[in-house]
Structures are given as structure tokens and as C-alpha cells.
Amino acid sequence: MIIEQLSVFLENRSGRLHEVFEILGKNNINVSACSLADTSEFGILRLIPSDPIQAREILKKNLFSVNVSEVISFAAPNSPGALSRTLKILADAGIGVDYLYGFSPGEKSFIVLRPDDAAKAVAEFQKHEMELLSASDLYKF
């Protein structure tokens, strides 16, 4: 249930983000989820590609700094308080959250989250019967 996410180091330069997606598109790699974090100096693009290994190789070949990190993804009801209840599970277990990103297209919300201990987070969520998504689930969207 642990998903491999790529993060790409980007300088704050216009057109740079476009280049990443252009390269991935040309190589027929789909991106299921992504988020861009920015500081005044640089940005970090986080994305979940259909083929993490190949995506990493291609980006590296194009001279990007790429890092693979472990994230988890889950679905929660699209209703007030739902995310709060989920996060409480992690908080009660003493698991820290580095960042998360998500979207609620309909009845469900889908969240990608980076815990400081991915394996422990998966175990906690399973214990509470949360709807965890696997990498293959994500690629289907």
C-alpha cells in the first residue's frame, strides 16, 4: 500500500514545470497525482507517475534531480469532519505528517500523504479499516 512518489527539484524559472510534463508526456508516462511546493528560491514538484522507475530514469537523463519518497493514499467520505477523523488516527499513533495533497471530485475525497513512518501509517489505517489505495488503483484514474 506504500506508493512511490517522485519529487523533482525545480529552480524558479518560467517554463521549467512545463518541461517536466513535456518530457513525461513524450515518453508516454501518465501522472495520476501531483503537487507543487514553492519557496522564494526553488520549488519541489511531487508526482505519482504510472511508471515510477522509468519516469525517474527519464527525468534523470534530462538532468533533473529526482528523489523517490514513500507516500500513502486513501479515500475518505467527502463530508465535513472526515479528514479530521483520519488525521486523528495518525495523531493518536504519534505519526507525523510531512505534507499532503488531495482532491474531492464527487462522493469521495482522495488524499496523498507523506507520513514520517509510511509502514506504521499503513498499519494504523488498516487497523481502522480505512480505504487505502494502492499504486495500481491510482494509475486507473
Binding site: 512518489q5 519529487s7 527539484f9 519541489i44 529526482v66 510531512d98 507523506r114
Partner: peptide
């Protein structure tokens, strides 16, 4: 230059 080997996902 931020090379791969010390590039971190965390800001």
C-alpha cells in the same frame, strides 16, 4: 548545484 545524492523531498 543540488545533485541527486543530497536532494531531499522535504523543503
Amino acid at each position: 548545484e543540488v545533485e541527486d545524492r543530497f536532494y531531499q523531498d522535504k523543503i
